[in-house]
Amino acid sequence: MIPVRRIVATCALGALGVALSACGTSGPPGTPKPAPPGPPASASGSAVPSRPPTLAPGPGGLTPVFTNGPRTRGRTVALTFDADMTADEGPRAAGGEHFDNPRLINTLRAFKVPATVFMTGRWADQYPAQARALGRDPLFEVANHSYSHYAFTKDCYGLPTVSKDRMRADVERAYAAFTKAGVPHAMPYFRFPGGCYDQQALRTLSAVGVTAVQWDVVSGDAFATDSDAVARQVLEGVKPGSVVVMHCTRSAAPATERALRTIVPELRKRGFRFVKVSELIGAANQHP
């Protein structure tokens, strides 16, 4: 049996059961002016490949798991941002809590850094205009982080648990939320809430046809207030082909945007090129 992965990632640190937040698209006063996004994807899908790369199923048809790209195919790195508002956080949003970080998204645009956003369906329901803008901006790709942000195993950092018979429905409900919000091309990639999974979860999701995406670099940005420490942890961990897990939220990862201002120029100075997860998976298929 594949052991449960309990990666110490941002969505799993700090107050247990509290989901981290996601990305916005319009900044407050003082937000740096972003580079203009490209045109929206056309109805025919020409802005996004019609068949995004995925990994072949694992033994017995299990959902494949992707952690990092090839180490020898150039100095590429994928920054990923979890948008993990949980299903029960609507009252907190209604009370004024912000589950977005417009300044961070604008900074990515200003630096022209492509990124993959793993979004919960609940967040897309809460912020449909922002989800649509992210999904139509060719700088970004939107992937699935479940609808509820409930765990797919037991004992996952205090998160509520999705029952086995609801796992597939939870993932499919997230895709339905993306469609409702106007995201035209959600990717066939799934990130387990908390990074927790086991063989049963992989087997249950095999019918959905997704590639599960983990990471090999933990940014440590959850609830962090020291942007230098976050930047240092990322810079010390990145290797060619790395997938970095981060968050874009004003409340639960307040240091991330400042950390990016150090991370991006330094990695470019070292010769790294920023790519989306889809490019790393495509490279892995070509050179397993």
Rank of each mutant, 00 (worst) to 15 (best):
M1E: 13
P3W: 10
P3R: 14
R6N: 14
V8W: 12
A9I: 15
G17S: 03
V18D: 10
V18N: 04
A19H: 11
P28V: 10
P29G: 04
P32Q: 00
K33S: 10
K33Y: 00
P34K: 00
P37Y: 06
G38P: 01
P39F: 01
P40V: 05
P40K: 08
S42G: 15
A47N: 13
A47E: 12
V48T: 13
R51V: 11
P57C: 05
P59L: 03
G60T: 03
G61V: 08
T63E: 06
F66V: 12
T72N: 14
G74P: 02
V77T: 00
F81I: 00
D82M: 04
A83M: 10
E89M: 15
G90C: 01
G95M: 09
H98T: 14
D100P: 00
P102R: 04
L104I: 07
L108T: 02
L108R: 02
L108V: 03
R109P: 05
R109W: 04
F118G: 02
G121V: 00
Y127I: 09
Y127Q: 11
A129L: 13
G135T: 08
S146W: 03
Y147V: 03
S148L: 10
H149D: 06
A151Q: 08
T153G: 09
C156L: 08
P160Q: 03
K164P: 02
R166I: 01
R168I: 14
E172C: 08
A176L: 08
T179Y: 09
K180P: 06
P184G: 00
A186M: 11
P193N: 04
C196E: 07
D198N: 15
Q200V: 15
R203E: 12
T204R: 12
L205D: 01
A207D: 14
V208C: 05
G209Y: 02
T211D: 03
Q214A: 13
D216C: 08
D221E: 09
D221P: 06
A224Y: 03
A224H: 05
A229R: 15
R232D: 13
G237S: 02
G241I: 02
H247D: 06
T249K: 04
L260K: 02
I263N: 01
K269R: 15
K269D: 13
R270S: 02
F274R: 11
V277W: 09
E279C: 08
A283L: 15
N285Y: 04
P288W: 12
